[in-house]
Computed example of a mutant assay.
Amino acid sequence: MKPKISLKARLAYDDVAKGLADAGVVQGSMFGMPCLKIEKKMLGGLYGDAMTFKLPPEPREEALALTGAEHFDPGMGRPMKEWVVIPLEHSESWPKYAELALEFVSK
């Protein structure tokens, strides 16, 4: 079952999406959650009151050091190694990680 999304998380996610729109990032859906894509490649998504990001090694380790952050498991019992879930309490860092994810998936 998907976690519920609060209004605060949705608004923070929408701000991230708006900030990336000029770069060609569009909103979509994947794993049953709202997500951000560039050329059909997913770079991030909203999972409950957290955002997920596909990150390269160094930014991934930095993100995992944040309180409550963890590898993303979309409910299949197997975490995705390049994906990190960053809780709403760190939403001020979401734009930074979204930019890093965009760079990573655009290579």
Rank of each mutant, 00 (worst) to 15 (best):
Y13F: 15
A69P: 10
D73E: 10
K18I: 06
K107P: 01
K37Q: 15
A9M: 01
G32H: 05
L20P: 07
R60K: 15
G28Q: 04
M51N: 11
A69V: 04
A69R: 01
K40G: 04
W94A: 00
E39L: 05
L100H: 01
C35H: 09
E61W: 06
K18P: 08
A101L: 03
G77R: 07
Y97T: 01
G45R: 08
V84C: 03
K37L: 14
M33K: 03
G68H: 06
K41D: 06
A23V: 10
S6K: 06
V105Q: 07
M76G: 14
M33W: 02
P57M: 05
F104Y: 15
A21S: 14
V85K: 14
A12P: 08
E89Q: 14
L46V: 01
K81T: 01
A69I: 07
P59W: 03
P57L: 13
F104M: 05
G48A: 09
D22H: 12
I38M: 08
A23Y: 15
I5N: 08
I5P: 03
E70A: 13
A65E: 13
E89G: 14
Q27R: 15
A65V: 02
P79T: 01
Y13G: 10
M33R: 07
P59Q: 03
E58P: 11
V26P: 03
G19L: 05
A101E: 08
L64K: 05
W83Q: 03
I38Q: 09
D73Y: 06
F104C: 03
E70Y: 02
E39M: 06
P79D: 09
A101I: 07
L64F: 01
P74S: 09
D73W: 04
E99P: 00
P59S: 08
S91I: 02
Y13S: 04
G48Y: 12
E103M: 08
E61Q: 15
L7Q: 13
A17V: 08
K96T: 15
P56Y: 06
G44T: 00
A9G: 03
K2D: 07
K18H: 12
A101M: 02
D22A: 14
D15A: 15
P59L: 10
R10N: 12
Y13N: 09
E103L: 12
H71K: 15
I5S: 09
M33V: 12
G44I: 04
K81C: 00
A21Y: 02
L11P: 01
L66K: 14
V85R: 14
P34H: 06
I38F: 13
G44W: 02
P56S: 15
L7W: 06
L88D: 02
M33I: 12
G19F: 00
G68D: 10
S91W: 00
M1R: 11
K81G: 00
M51L: 14
